[in-house]
Design a protein around this nucleic acid. Sequence first.
DNA 1: CGCATGCATTGAACTAGGACAAGAAATAAA
DNA 2: TTTATTTCTTGTCCTAGTTCAATGCATGCG
Lengths: 211, 211
Amino acid sequence: MLGVFIKHFLPLVSKIKTLYSQINKNISRYVSFDQQELEIFNSLLEFKTVPKKTMLLQEGEMCNFEAFVVKGCVRKYYIDDNGFEVILQFAIENAWVSDISFSIYEDKPSRVFIETLEDCEFFMFSPESKEELFRNAPQFERAFRILMQRSLAVTQDRLFNTISKTAIEKYLEFLEHYPTLSQRVAQHYIASYLGISAEFLSKIRTKIAKL
Amino acid sequence: MLGVFIKHFLPLVSKIKTLYSQINKNISRYVSFDQQELEIFNSLLEFKTVPKKTMLLQEGEMCNFEAFVVKGCVRKYYIDDNGFEVILQFAIENAWVSDISFSIYEDKPSRVFIETLEDCEFFMFSPESKEELFRNAPQFERAFRILMQRSLAVTQDRLFNTISKTAIEKYLEFLEHYPTLSQRVAQHYIASYLGISAEFLSKIRTKIAKL
DNA sequence: CGCATGCATTGAACTAGGACAAGAAATAAA
DNA sequence: TTTATTTCTTGTCCTAGTTCAATGCATGCG
């Protein structure tokens, strides 16, 4: 009996500890928290395992989570008027994904989809838990403000690139910026992220390879 | 003596009151504050009048302000590798402008310029004042987080449009979204904002006019 | 007032990137 | 292993948008 406990339960406890320390490290990046605050935070998170090719959010639904990617890879995308997918974000280890856009144009339903591309592990955070967190440990308000601010900076930078750079430049910059991602996800997803057609990306790649 | 006071000073006091109520209304949009909190907030703001065509921020400088536009219009823009301006934001009455990007790639100097397009009135907010505000009235952390969140949603939406829509669609959507702006700023600025050439925007406009 | 500088328009030639189609390669499924 | 499905490549033709003039129109400014 004790043997079973040691063999199965202890490693699990140890894994969970590692997972919490992963997200705690992330949230403490710009604001430092004491042990008690982190425990409040951790108690409000829900750990979740999701197989690949699973939809976390469908068009028109209300997004009732913020997800921290412990492991795996997801894409967040829109579908435009002609039925084309436009990928807004890849989220891999230690990134956050959620849809915040619904709050803007309250009348229009959100067109955002969020889908896992690999088997994933998440910490999920509901709006209610978030409110409770802010009530019990107001310092987190600050941490989330800074996270938001960084996302905004990244998005602005990407907007600038999208407007001012050629397809080749965008692709090279993508490779530099997300070196592992080109191995992990299909080319046509990268094309969709860069705002170019899959065929053209392929042509770019052969051109680059010939240099 | 009293006559002078009544004639000059009282109207000024009244104007200042109106100005404060304008920014207070804006900051209270998603979080409500009591009178005392608003007074702390107001005491940390600096009111500033700036003539048109003035640079508030130059490339490479550190952005040491967040500006609330009381009156007037400014543009925030990057310059790309070929020397072309790309306008990231127009800020008019009741909008905030600042450069938050410097915090991301700490090594590279910021390429952002902020310039007034009309005679402007601002409330300026320094990073130090902001910290002091958060210390003395932590509720503001929340308000600024939500402002950030809205900016992010707007920017994401714009990124999506930039990628997925044609120039005509983008222009029509711009007109709908910022109806007054097309009267207030030069066409080529709007073209730069939409990510198209000034000539092509002109062609689009004549095409639209003929319908 | 005339002049200069910036702004909008129009046209002609050009190009980056898209759309479509058809095959090759790779991955999954059976 | 064979088959099926998805992904990647390559070629041809096509178009949205650019670039580079040249010209007319404003607007400010000495």
